[in-house]
Design a protein around this nucleic acid. Structure first.
Lengths: 171, 171
DNA sequence: TGTTTAGTTCGGTTGTTGCAGAACCAAATA
DNA sequence: TATTTGGTTCTGCAACAACCGAACTAAACA
């Protein structure tokens, strides 16, 4: 029932996994190819890979890879490193930066909040009170979150620091 | 320089605002028409409006409005109410539900986390330690967040309750 | 100086999405 | 029973996005 390919059978499993990861990132709104590149850079060994290696593995065109890598670098999720005496760039995930981007996304409601605030100002607060208060509640929630989340991030950083101190002591 | 329309000048301002709100929701990934319907329901007085009123205001086709309303109802952001002796449905925002959806989105990293976890299991933890730990850190961050966020929501609910008790006492 | 390498940029093709218009349907009304 | 009302579903089109291939560029090499 299952179809097997003669060529490069060892990487078939990897390719499937990369596709799977790609689909997961598709669902977050990324373009398919961008998701696949992310997937490859998550699984690849070593974690830094050349333009050509990525292109070959994904069987895609140079332009798609170029676009995907530039998008990811623009977002800060991917960076590249170089080695002296080697012209190639080696692309890799920047986990640290990725995390920062994720944090930003989590705290930023600015666009929706701006219009929500405007709507609240245009509405008569006494006219449909329950409705008005429902909107106010959402706004208040966002406000609260954007204040508290940074504290939570801080708390996590501290937890991480004590964890690392602990595991260092154990060695 | 500015172009004025003879007809319905009083609602020109409203229409602009609705468009503005629409754009803000576009940016969150919603389709334009869905954003505009949301915008109208945010500003409309009364906050419950018939299918036809929405269609008229937005100057859109029935099918677009039908699709937009059903999408919004599926998401739980919009609901409808009825009045006895009136066949029409009156559509309105459900702020409570909207907030719940927002909370869910904030705590749910399951898709990305699943593949991240898989990637971690497939990687050799000793081979590119810094990279591996970077990924682990993201995973740990998500885990931490999905544990702590509900507590934060709880904290907000309590703050809200005390606020309301306070304002009730003042009256 | 030509040639290779490592990508980028520019059309063109194909697939997908958003919307309109018209046909449709079910419930209420006449 | 026929008609109106309040939507829904289907079909088709126009705009857009994702991707490819080919032409291009800039740096390194020979």
């Amino acid at each position: 029932m299952q179809q097997e390919r003669e060529e490069m059978p060892s990487s078939t499993f990897l390719k499937q996994k990369v596709e799977e990861i790609g689909v997961a990132f598709d669902k977050t709104g990324l373009a398919p190819m961008i998701g696949r590149v992310l997937g490859f850079l998550l699984l690849a060994d070593p974690p830094y890979q050349t333009f050509y290696a990525i292109q070959e593995f994904l069987g895609a065109s140079k332009s798609s890879i170029s676009h995907a890598l530039n998008s990811l670098m623009f977002k800060g999720i991917v960076e590249y490193i170089t080695f002296s005496g080697d012209r190639k760039r080696y692309f890799k995930l920047n986990a640290e930066n990725w995390l920062e981007q994720a944090k930003c996304k989590m705290t930023d409601f600015s666009e929706v909040d701006r219009v929500l605030m405007e709507a609240l100002q245009l509405r008569d607060p006494n006219k449909h009170k329950e409705f008005h208060e429902g909107l106010l509640k959402i706004f208040d929630f966002h406000l609260f979150m954007s204040q508290e989340m940074p504290k939570l991030f801080e708390k996590w950083e501290q937890k991480l620091a004590t964890q690392q101190a602990g595991s260092a002591r154990d060695n």
